[in-house]
Design a protein around this nucleic acid. Structure first.
Lengths: 263, 263
DNA sequence: ACCTGAACACCGTTCAAGT
DNA sequence: ACCTGAACACCGTTCAAGT
């Protein structure tokens, strides 16, 4: 199965230049590919070396250990997010490697919100930030758990990530303290949501989508309210869509800001 | 360091009866102790066997593999939660093993909410459910990630866990669909929050508590709004307490329910 | 039924050596 | 500077054998 060949076939999308050298970037690209295709635990140092057509120890010359590889992958995810959300900003282009701009499904693809009057601009801005964040985590389901557990390790790039949230809520007129608290809460929600979503996509089940089946297996009287509510909902009502769930959560949150902070 | 002795000293709190036999329960207890004391990755099958004073292979007679051990641990966490939140319910007591009732720090330890009039009962009920859930995850920080990633594997016991949330929101008068959506959102928030909290307690940093230091290292103009807001807050304003953060999140959520669903 | 010993097919990482 | 081979100290798990 595993092709431990000579100097690695040109598997990745990148065109191999005449010079084929090992670098932090090529290593991380290969690692990401393994994680995406075969899951977290398939990503071993030896396997990584094999797909690069290189001795396992060569990797240690560019990254100090396996943890650093995973930290590097987490960083990639956030970097992707930052580059995606301000595709137009006047940034001095980083050397090499353009990050492909992924577009969220539901929204208009062109310029940001076409001239609309109304006063609900900050809500849209906040929604956009939230969707971009979710999409970045969703792009690599197998990596999500690692990213969320390791967000710490990625300092700068993670901090940049919250700027759009701050901007939206600043525009909404909240106080600094309110902004700080609201952003923390919203990001916690997105993390929890994405964790559930990633679990389902990876392989297993999750609470929301499976509730009906599980409740039916309960002994009578173990969870009376839950049982009754689920029955009232019926099979149709329980059909779960992650997209809807995310939207609902966001709108609940926006409504909360309005009510608590008088917006 | 590791004491690989004869038939295992009486390390666990349980009194060793004359008969010292291996069982699913003793294995899981030992595993939980290793995870709590030394972290997830210290919990290897061989290490577990050593602390039980037993051959590694003996374990496989009671649990099919390592994944099953972790699933069992996740189940313990949720079982703990269920037993804690209805300490008084008339349940036929399960054979053996009483789960110690952990009490949350901030609240009055006695009977639930002493006779209070007012119409805000459901809010308190919801808060209590949320705190109990958070506390269960907080009781074993090293396990939190595993639990959240694996909640799926633990079917029945996880389902029971949401009953208090359903009861509170049913009392609030929401429709079944609204309850379903609100509970999903709230639990996602708690998961995300607990993930962050567990990461900090385990070893690393996290966004909220560390924001100030990190923002100061940003290049000028990289995140203008964030930078300005953080400066306005100042060092004092940014001091982060998880307890406050959780309370804020909950109240934002409760306010959202009020505003969206007219309660 | 429950436990064991030896073995298999892996790991991450150190270290001394090659070019 | 960058890469390698051999080795060390581990893993999870299978399998045939013991009582």
């Amino acid at each position: 199965m595993v092709n431990v060949g000579k100097p690695a076939g040109g598997r990745s999308g990148r065109p191999r230049a005449g010079e084929e050298r090992l670098s932090r970037q090529t290593i991380l690209d290969a690692a990401l590919r393994i994680v995406d295709d075969e899951g977290l635990e398939a990503m071993t140092m030896r396997r990584l070396a094999a797909t690069l057509g290189v001795n396992p120890m060569s990797i240690y010359h560019h990254l100090p250990n396996k943890a650093a590889v995973f930290a590097g992958l987490a960083e990639l995810v956030f970097a992707d997010l930052n580059n995606t959300s301000r595709a137009e900003a006047t940034t001095s282009r980083k050397a090499g490697r353009e990050v492909p701009v992924r577009r969220s499904a539901g929204r208009s693809p062109g310029a940001s919100t076409p001239t609309r009057s109304g006063g609900d601009r900050w809500q849209d801005e906040l929604m956009n930030a939230a969707h971009a964040y979710r999409n970045a985590l969703r792009a690599h389901p197998n990596l999500a758990l690692q990213v969320l557990a390791d967000a710490a390790a990625v300092s700068e790039v993670v901090v940049l990530t919250v700027e759009p949230f701050y901007r939206a809520l600043d525009r909404a007129g909240l106080t600094p303290r309110q902004i700080f608290e609201a952003v923390n809460t919203l990001i916690d929600f997105i993390h929890g949501f994405s964790l559930g979503e990633a679990s389902v996509r990876a392989d297993t089940f999750e609470l929301a989508p499976d509730l009906l089946e599980r409740v039916s297996k309960l002994q009578p009287g173990q969870a009376p309210t839950l049982t009754r509510i689920v029955e009232e909902l019926g099979a149709d009502g329980l059909h779960y869509e992650f997209d809807d769930g995310f939207e609902t959560g966001l709108s609940l949150f926006v409504a909360g800001i309005g009510a608590r902070f008088g917006r």
